Amino acid sequence: MSTLAFWQDFVAERAPGPPYRSRYTVGVGARWFDLPLRPLPDGQHAVASFLANQASFTVLDAIVDEMTRAARAFAPDVIVALPTLGLSVGPGVARGCGHDRFVPLGTSRKFWYDDALSVSLSSITSPGGGKRLYLDPNILDLLRGRRILVVDDVVSTGASLAAALALLDRAGCPAGGGLSVMCQTRRWMDVIGIPVASVFRTPLFAREGEGWRPVDGTMPPDDAGAGAWTVP
């Protein structure tokens, strides 16, 4: 299934289902937004997908506005954004919080980097391994003694966010919260020990006939709706 038409605009009504055929509808503020359903390699399960760098500016701006509202409730001193897709939303959230800049983490090692300020990195969409996550030693002074909020696009297994938290801990600059566009299923809750907020949340789906049905007990908690802080 082509995802070219997804992530470009809001919709007037929710997708029919369950079971859902190819799309699952979530809320972005007061508007509805469709996500494509991607079958996992086992062929029997699927997840809802969002790619920040393929979204229209209209959609991305609305999502960043919702993220900014959640970030302001956390009152961060600095926004740290994860590569790659967290860098699509991190600058906007930092700007919305009144900050002059944000702190990007990276996967490309510059010659002046210190290997002690790096950790291994993997994710559900880039499972090959071999990557490392780096913090530029020249920007440590932006983090020391500050209230840090880590921003990413999707929290799924929690591996990427956990790597960022470990890296910040190693640098002596622990983060107090995480913020993402989407919390996908509950798997991340076993490995993340800080509050995490998101614009929307999605469950795991199991195949049912020609469609997909949400699996009971896999929707992440969000007691107060989109943008609420959630402690695992």
Rank of each mutant, 00 (worst) to 15 (best):
Q44I: 06
Q44A: 15
Q44Y: 03
H45F: 05
H45V: 05
H45E: 12
H45N: 11
A46V: 10
A46K: 08
A46S: 13
V47F: 11
V47R: 13
V47H: 08
A48F: 05
A48V: 05
S49M: 15
S49N: 11
S49T: 15
S49W: 12
F50L: 12
F50Q: 10
F50T: 09
L51F: 15
L51Q: 15
A52Y: 10
N53S: 15
N53P: 05
N53V: 13
Q54K: 14
Q54M: 14
Q54D: 15
Q54V: 12
A55L: 12
A55E: 12
A55M: 10
F57I: 11
F57D: 13
T58C: 05
T58G: 08
V59Y: 08
V59W: 07
V59M: 09
L60A: 09
L60Q: 14
D61G: 11
D61M: 04
D61L: 04
V64E: 11
V64T: 15
D65Q: 13
D65V: 13
D65M: 12
D65W: 06
E66A: 15
E66M: 11
E66D: 09
M67S: 07
T68F: 07
T68N: 04
R69L: 14
R69D: 13
A70Q: 04
A70I: 02
A70R: 07
A71S: 01
A71Y: 06
R72V: 12
R72T: 03
R72M: 10
R72W: 06
F74E: 03
F74L: 09
A75N: 08
P76M: 04
D77N: 06
D77G: 03
D77K: 00
D77S: 11
D77I: 02
D77A: 00
V78D: 05
V78G: 01
I79T: 03
I79D: 02
I79F: 00
V80I: 08
V80S: 05
A81G: 15
A81T: 10
A81N: 06
L82V: 09
L82F: 01
T84Y: 09
T84F: 07
L87R: 05
V89Y: 04
V89A: 03
V89M: 01
G90W: 02
G90P: 02
P91M: 00
P91H: 04
P91C: 05
G92V: 07
G92N: 03
G92P: 07
V93N: 02
A94Y: 01
A94F: 03
R95T: 10
G96R: 01
G96Q: 03
C97S: 05
C97H: 02
C97G: 02
C97Y: 01
C97W: 01
G98S: 00
H99P: 00
H99R: 08
D100T: 11
D100Y: 04
R101T: 12
R101A: 13
R101C: 07
V103S: 04
L105A: 08
L105P: 02
L105S: 05
G106M: 10
G106P: 01
G106E: 14
T107M: 13
S108A: 14
S108T: 14
R109I: 07
R109G: 06
R109T: 08
R109F: 04
